[in-house]
Design a binder for these strands. Structure first.
Ligand code: MN
Ligand code: MN
Ligand code: ZN
Ligand code: ZN
Lengths: 146, 146
DNA sequence: ACCAAGACGAGAGTCGTTATCATCTCTCGC
DNA sequence: GCGAGAGATGATAACGACTCTCGTCTTGGT
């Protein structure tokens, strides 16, 4: 599933604007992320790129992801299983969070305005300038509950 | 800071009710957690117990924490730095989440009804029976922002 | 074409966590 | 109380995600 046809171009342009060079690993990781809008681990990205004939080192995957996260082009997602996952982050600040089924492991994205509003309220009340937040909801999906 | 003078007794009773035996490691970990209501890593618990003369293996600390989490007596907290933390979970379902300062690393707990309500709504809309959720707010505290 | 800075890949290393296994201890029936 | 057996513990090895190091290759500018 493609987030937006514009994302990879936007990401590559942002890398260039940040004074970084164009390199094979960066192009490959960005291209792969553009084909999956939700939750890919470094290993999955590594395997995916190599399955398409690319030759990327796992160290480069981590390095590229670090850079993309620092530039806010990618969001890091932690689902609690000890593996960090990554997904494209749209420039307009629009993003989603995740529900995980404890039974089958299914991951489903969601967006909720009331939730975002509540988080803004909390940060303000505590005197924090919020610049990110992570939310994971855990439970049983309707299939696993049956 | 002590969560509730009743927590350690409640936890030990719950372990007994679950058909588990009383052992030195379990008592030591429960006692340590009762003295800290927020965010202790396995290593911190291990060091803390040993500093008080106890002799607990790190493997036992992890095992006890696993058991306590399974019985919902302890909540696992992931702040995104690759280290799992643990804190007592009161039986009435009352709990808190965390704000982390990217500058100084300060961690502050908070509770928010609107947030909890929004999460219930999200889970319901997606057809999930929510049984847990994790929320981490990240930003700059007023000290680091100055 | 040349060069310096930067990007890359392979492999070693780190560290939190988990698995193994021999030893110890709690509990229960006697 | 005593003994037996199930369960708990701790030292250590193993594991896996991630990071560091370093030599080589590529990029972008002159
Ligand atoms: Mn959000
Ligand atoms: Mn909550
Ligand atoms: Zn399910
Ligand atoms: Zn701070």
């Amino acid at each position: 599933m493609i987030v937006s046809t514009a994302w990879p171009d936007h990401a590559l342009a942002a890398l260039r604007d940040a004074g970084l060079r164009s390199g094979g690993a960066r192009r490959a990781v960005v291209a792969h992320l553009a084909r999956h809008d939700c939750c890919r681990s470094a290993q999955e990205i590594h395997d995916g790129v190599r399955a398409e004939g690319g030759t990327v080192g796992i160290a480069s995957v981590y390095r590229v992801l670090d850079t993309l996260v620092a530039l806010r082009l990618v969001q890091r997602v932690e689902l609690g299983d000890g593996v960090a996952r990554f997904e494209p982050s749209t420039s307009d600040g629009h993003h989603h969070h995740h529900v995980v089924c404890d039974g089958c492991g299914k991951v489903e994205p969601f967006s909720d305005n009331a939730l975002e509003h509540a988080l803004e309220g909390v940060a303000g009340r505590l005197g924090f300038a919020m610049d990110a937040h992570e939310v994971v909801v855990r439970g049983a999906c309707d299939t696993c509950r049956a």
